[in-house]
Nucleic acid binder design. Structure first.
Lengths: 114, 114
DNA sequence: GGTATATATAACCTTATAGTTATATAACCT
DNA sequence: AGGTTATATAACTATAAGGTTATATATACC
């Protein structure tokens, strides 16, 4: 927890919790109030409130307060940044696969350069 | 942490740590031994060892033990499953955007439909 | 065999997290 | 005003997570 670089940290951390992933899954189907989000989970109302807050702070969720009701919507920018981090690693990996054949063939005693 | 559904949980949890994401970034460029992975981080050798273990257990990393050296490679299957979870939510969200216009225009007392 | 190297394990500490219950705030409704 | 509803905050507890140092294990080298 020393290095909290660029938002990504908070997004992945938020998505690490299965309850929060389920909340995101629900929100991806359309906006819901905090109360509606809580229905179906077996955790307390303050519990849901805290999860919603975490998702909000990392940018995955936006809140529209109307009266006493808080309507939550998914804000896909954050999910996009996390997803693109993954895509990037994937792309690097594919690029590395070329060089890889060479390295893997190395029987631990050959420092040849091609 | 009551609901540990399908691997995804462990993968997101692993990626929540910035040190482990940096390890993944390095591995995406090509295989490295545990020792090589540790170089450049300011944490102790056992610290690295534990991070590597976490990445291995969630399926992001594979280990090839040759002699006393452990060569680590990225195993992109896990990253793919996490990434596709995100893509799925994204897709649902886009689908929801159609229905959304209707809902968002409703000012809780809506006097107009467009 | 003895020593150095690569990595893992054990034991421990500290901080963070997810959950709880109880209470507060604010909006809506007679 | 009084009561109900929606959500947040406070205070607390338990467990997990990341870090450490010290030690163990296994391989390599002379």
């Amino acid at each position: 927890m020393v290095n909290t670089q660029g938002g990504l940290d908070a997004v992945f951390s938020a998505l690490a919790d299965p309850t929060r992933r389920r909340i995101v899954e629900r929100l991806a189907r359309g906006p819901l109030t905090v109360g509606e989000l809580g229905a179906g989970f077996s955790i307390s109302q303050p519990g849901i409130s805290k999860h919603v807050r975490v998702l909000e702070e990392c940018g995955l969720l936006k809140r529209d307060v109307v009266g006493r009701v808080h309507r939550c919507t998914l804000s896909p920018k954050a999910i996009r940044s996390a997803s693109s981090w993954m895509e990037k690693q994937y792309a690097f990996w594919n690029a590395a696969l070329d060089r890889l054949g060479d390295i893997l063939d190395e029987p631990s005693k050959r420092k040849k350069k091609r």
